[in-house]
Measured scan of single mutants.
Amino acid sequence: NARWTTEEQLLAVQAIRKYGRDFQAISDVIGNKSVVQVKNFFVNYRRRFNIDEVLQEWEAEHGK
């Protein structure tokens, strides 16, 4: 399903906090979204969920 429920959106943001840009890991956490759908989520929801800021926090924690 290409549509993202609110629950899936929140799950994705939590997974980004945990896995950074590991699209496969994020896809696995959500369970019903492909890697391509996760990559599209990054692009389409970047502003709404401040994904750049979430990634900066992840990179700071993981030394990337």
Rank of each mutant, 00 (worst) to 15 (best):
I51W: 08
K33S: 00
D28R: 15
L10F: 06
F42Y: 06
V29E: 13
F42A: 03
A12W: 02
V36N: 15
V13G: 04
R48T: 14
L10E: 13
F42K: 03
I16K: 00
W58Q: 07
R17A: 06
T5F: 03
T5P: 05
I30V: 04
E53H: 11
E7S: 10
W4M: 04
H62V: 11
Q37V: 03
G31H: 14
D28Q: 14
A60F: 10
L11T: 10
V38T: 01
W4E: 03
W4Q: 04
V29H: 15
A60N: 08
V54G: 05
K18Y: 03
L10S: 10
K39A: 08
D22T: 04
K33Q: 00
I30T: 05
Q9M: 14
A12K: 03
V29D: 06
E7W: 04
L55G: 07
V38W: 03
H62N: 14
W58V: 08
R21H: 08
L55V: 11
Y19P: 02
V38S: 00
G20N: 01
V13S: 04
F49D: 10
V13Y: 04
N40L: 09
D22S: 03
E7A: 15
F41C: 01
V36P: 14
A25R: 12
F41V: 01
Y19C: 04
Y19I: 01
D52Y: 04
E53R: 13
D28F: 04
K33I: 04
H62G: 11
V43G: 09
V38G: 01
V38A: 00
K18D: 04
K39R: 11
V36F: 12
Y19T: 04
D52E: 07
H62W: 08
Y19Q: 06
K33G: 01
S34F: 03
F41M: 01
R48E: 15
Q37C: 06
W58C: 08
E53T: 10
R17Y: 00
E53K: 14
E61G: 11
F42Q: 01
R47H: 15
Q9V: 09
F49H: 10
A12C: 15
N44K: 11
G20I: 03
S34L: 04
R46P: 04
I16N: 11
D22N: 13
W58P: 07
D52A: 07
F42G: 03
K18W: 05
E53V: 10
I26R: 05
